[in-house]
C-alpha cells in the first residue's frame, strides 16, 4: 500500500508546470493555501475547483495517477465530511436517525470543508509531482534567504535537506540488507502480536542507526576534505531562472484571489 502514496513523489514529464521555477511554484502553492480559505459559497468554491483542474490539466500528470495516489487521503476527507454532517447544528433538520439529527447546514459545511481539503491536497501534490525534491530545496533556500539576516541557518537547512534526499535510497537499500540478514538468523518481522512485532524491529533499527551515524561522520570528513566551511563565500552550480511564465503564474493566483473575494458572500 505504501508504494501507492504519491505525496512527496516526483512524476517525470515535460510540461509548463515542470519547467517553471520552483520559487514561483512554491509561492503559488503558498498563496493558494491562504486564499482557499476565502471561498465560502457555491460560486467561490467552484472557481477554486476550476482553477485546480486547470493546473492539473497543464501539469500533464494523468488524473488517474493522481486519483490512485490520493486514495488514502479520501478516508480522511470522508471522515471530515461525517464529522461535520453530524456535529454542525445549523439550518433546517433534513432527517433524523433516532437521537441523531442531520441539519442542512451540516451537510453543506461538510461538503465545502471536504472540497477545501481535497483541493489543498491536490495542489500541494501537484507541486511535488512536478518539482524534483532538490529543486524544491533550492527554491526554499532562495525564498528563505532574507531570514539569514535574522541569523537563521538557511544554507545549512537547505544542505541538510539535500543530503537527506541524497541518502534516502542508500538507507532504503541498507534497511533491506539488514532485514534480510536478521531474517536469515530467524528474525520475524511480519507475524505475531503487535508488542512482539515492535520488539522484532530492534535488531533492524540499532544497526541502521549505527550505520547512519558512521555515514554522517565519514561524510562530514569528506566534505571538510573537499573544502566545505559553511555557506560563506560559496558559489553555486545550480541556478534558478525566473521567467515570464513564473510572473504570469503569480498573476493568475492574484486573479483567483480577486475572484474569490468578489464572489464570496
Amino acid at each position: 500500500m505504501l508504494q501507492n502514496v504519491i505525496i512527496g513523489q516526483y512524476y517525470p514529464a515535460s510540461s509548463v508546470l515542470h519547467r517553471m521555477d520552483p520559487r514561483s511554484k512554491l509561492l503559488a502553492s503558498f498563496i493558494f493555501i491562504f486564499i482557499i480559505f476565502l471561498a465560502n459559497n457555491f460560486i467561490s468554491y467552484g472557481a477554486a475547483a476550476l482553477f485546480t483542474l486547470f493546473v492539473l490539466a497543464s501539469s500533464k500528470v494523468p488524473a488517474g495517477y493522481l486519483y490512485r495516489g490520493l486514495k488514502p487521503v479520501f478516508f480522511l476527507v470522508f471522515f471530515t465530511l461525517l464529522l461535520h454532517v453530524f456535529m454542525t447544528k445549523e439550518g433546517d433538520v433534513l432527517f433524523s436517525l433516532g437521537w441523531l439529527k442531520v441539519y442542512e447546514g451540516g451537510v453543506i459545511q461538510g461538503l465545502y470543508i471536504s472540497l477545501r481539503l481535497m483541493l489543498l491536497v491536490m495542489m500541494t501534490s501537484l507541486l511535488t509531482l512536478t518539482t524534483t525534491p532538490i529543486d524544491i530545496t533550492d527554491g526554499l533556500e532562495y525564498l528563505l534567504h532574507p531570514l539569514k539576516k535574522l541569523k537563521l541557518p538557511v544554507h545549512e537547512f537547505a544542505l541538510m535537506m539535500s543530503i537527506s534526499l541524497r541518502f534516502i535510497p542508500t538507507l532504503l537499500q541498507e534497511t533491506e540488507k539488514i532485514m534480510k540478514a536478521q531474517m536469515a538468523r530467524g528474525a520475524d518481522f511480519t507475524s505475531g502480536p503487535i508488542k512482539e512485532r515492535v520488539k522484532a524491529f530492534v535488531p533492524l533499527l540499532i544497526p541502521l542507526f549505527i550505520s547512519a551515524f558512521k555515514r554522517a561522520e565519514e561524510l562530514a570528513l569528506a566534505m571538510e576534505s573537499r573544502g566545505y566551511r559553511g555557506g560563506e563565500g560559496r558559489t553555486r552550480l545550480r541556478e534558478l531562472n525566473w521567467q515570464l511564465r513564473d510572473t504570469l503564474a503569480i498573476a493568475a493566483l492574484a486573479l483567483l484571489a480577486a475572484v474569490l473575494i468578489f464572489t464570496r458572500s
Binding site: 534480510k180 536478521q182 538468523r185 530467524g186 535488531p203 540499532i206 544497526p207
Partner: peptide
C-alpha cells in the same frame, strides 16, 4: 548465510547475546 560485511548486522549489548540471537529465534 554470512552476508557481505556481516558486522553490519550486530545489534546486541554484548557479544554473547548477539551470538545467541539466532539460536534463540
Amino acid at each position: 548465510i554470512v552476508f557481505q560485511y556481516p558486522e553490519h548486522q550486530l545489534f546486541e549489548e554484548t557479544v554473547e547475546k548477539d551470538i545467541m540471537f539466532g539460536p534463540m529465534n
